[in-house]
Every structure is written in structure tokens, then in C-alpha cells.
Design a protein around this nucleic acid. Sequence first.
DNA 1: TATAAACTTTTTAAGCTTAAAGTATTTTCC
DNA 2: GGAAAATACTTTAAGCTTAAAAAGTTTATA
Lengths: 152, 152
Amino acid sequence: MTAESLSKERLRLWLRMLRVTRQVESELRERLRTEHDSTLPRFDVMAALYAAEEGLKMNELSKRLRVSNGNVTGIIDRLVEDGAVERIAIEGDRRATRVCLTSAGRESFRAMAVEHERWINALFEGVTEEDAHHIGELLHRLPAAPHDASLS
Amino acid sequence: MTAESLSKERLRLWLRMLRVTRQVESELRERLRTEHDSTLPRFDVMAALYAAEEGLKMNELSKRLRVSNGNVTGIIDRLVEDGAVERIAIEGDRRATRVCLTSAGRESFRAMAVEHERWINALFEGVTEEDAHHIGELLHRLPAAPHDASLS
DNA sequence: TATAAACTTTTTAAGCTTAAAGTATTTTCC
DNA sequence: GGAAAATACTTTAAGCTTAAAAAGTTTATA
């Protein structure tokens, strides 16, 4: 195979991945909106906080989700308004704040997470366990393989 | 395998796809910005217009890119400002407009497209032609497989 | 031919996203 | 101790994104 055709094949693969990912994101966004009055970014933030027993600092959240600092500030602002999250001062460092789910936030997340997994399972109906495993392996060879295992 | 573990495996696959896709998008966005003073949405729109000899109506563009009408309006507004695109009245239907790349727009897109393919090829360096082909096939089983071949 | 329905696009309001600049605080190190 | 650098976060400006509403135009139909 020529380098030419390899390059084209990789480009095709990328476009296909992009299309599938956008479609799934769009479905998730729609359902979070209509069924939970929420959004995908909010869900992502809440998932990260749910997994962290003691909450996270803003910059940890930002690193973990790979989004900008300012972006996290805005999303947290809104989650605080909604009563799902609280900012807690950190002893001995007045620059930073720790962010935690409130118990209402935890409850709300649990409800979304159960459905989220159901939605994904349905959307990926055509994918067998073997397929999933196989694609997963191949994805490791793609960019952004988790250099930091804690982020994957 | 239990339905339980299949569901978990699919969820893991989704999260991995999402991570890879976001990483690649982030790289592309960064390079379009620094090297071409452009953005990914602009690139997508220009790609669609480049492929359409006679340009496209706004709603065709919107359908093809799977983004909202209002979104397309804004992107086209900015491309028109930049002189990359022009709106052309359609004979016999004063509701619609046809949108075309200007020759400056075509030239600018060509330059970006060449590099874009190079970037993807480098980012997907670890993927052989076989892999690419294989994942591509599997992706057909995922949601949003092109029901309309003209959109893939 | 009216007028209702459908279509095409833009506008609006709200939120997400980034990079860059700004503010405050802590750490480094001379 | 004090200046400089690093760190943590927020603000700002610009653009992307959506859903819903609005405005104008065309088509269907009664």
C-alpha cells in the first residue's frame, strides 16, 4: 500500500469517528436536556466529582476533564446556583477552593448515570463485547492514549 | 458474558472514543488557529462548500454538517466578513440563499486541507491500513451509520 | 382567491469553549 | 525579609452551539 492511500484511509477513519461521536453526543445532550434538565458538560463535571470522595480542586477538575480553567469556573458557577455543588475553602491556601457535590448533587448524578449507561448501551446495540474490546484496544494506538492512567 | 458486563464494556468503549476524538479535535483546532487563523467549524463548512461545485443552500449545509440552522447562519456571516464565502440569491425563491466559496475561499481551503490531511496522518501514525479499515467497518455498526450515503 | 400550512432563514437567550489578561496568594531563593 | 517566580482561580472577548421564536416567502387546499 502506498503512503498516499494509507493517509487517505486514516483520514476516512477520522471522519467516521467524528461523525459517530457527534451523533452520540447529540443524543446524550438531547436526553439530558429533556429528561434531566441538564447538559453534557454538567454531567461530565458531576461524574468527576462523584468519583472523587473528597471533591476536587478547580485545577484538578480542569486537568481531569481536559478543559480550560475558565470553562470549569463557569460550569461550577451554574452548578452552585442549582445547589448541586459547593465550593469549600482549603485550609492553608487561600488561592484554591475544593469543589464537592452536595448530597442533592450526588443523588441527581446517580439518577442521570443509571440512565446514561442505559442510553449508551442502547446506542451501541450493534456492538458485541468482542467488538467493544477490539476497538478499545485499537483506540490505544490512537492519539491521546492515556499517558496518565489516572486520567483514563 | 452477562448483559451487565456487556453494558459496562460498551460504556468503556464510548468513553475511550470520546477521549480520543476530543484530543484530536483539540489538536486540529489549535493548529488551524495558530497556522491559519481559522477554526474547526469554519473548516467543516468550507469543506462542505468546496465539495459542492455550485454551492449549497443554508439548510443543505445545516443538514450535511448536522448542526442547527442558526449556527450555520453565524459561521457563514463570519466567513462572508472574511471574504471567503458569498451569499447568492436563488431565482424564484426569495426565502433561500445559495452559499458559495469565493476564489479566495477556495484557495484558502486548499491550503488548509493539505495540512489537515498531514496532521491527521501524523496523529494516527500508530494505525496501520488494516487497523483503519477494520475500525472503520466496526464503526458502521455504531450509531449514526450513514443512512444517507451522501452524508458519509 | 383566500388562508392555512409548510418552508427557509435569521434572531434571541442561554450556555459552552478557548486563549489571554488580570487578581490574589504562596513559594522560591537571594 | 523581600523581590521574583510560580500557582490557583476568575474575568474578558470572541466564537461556537442549541432550541425556540420570529419573520418572510412559497405551496397547498378549501
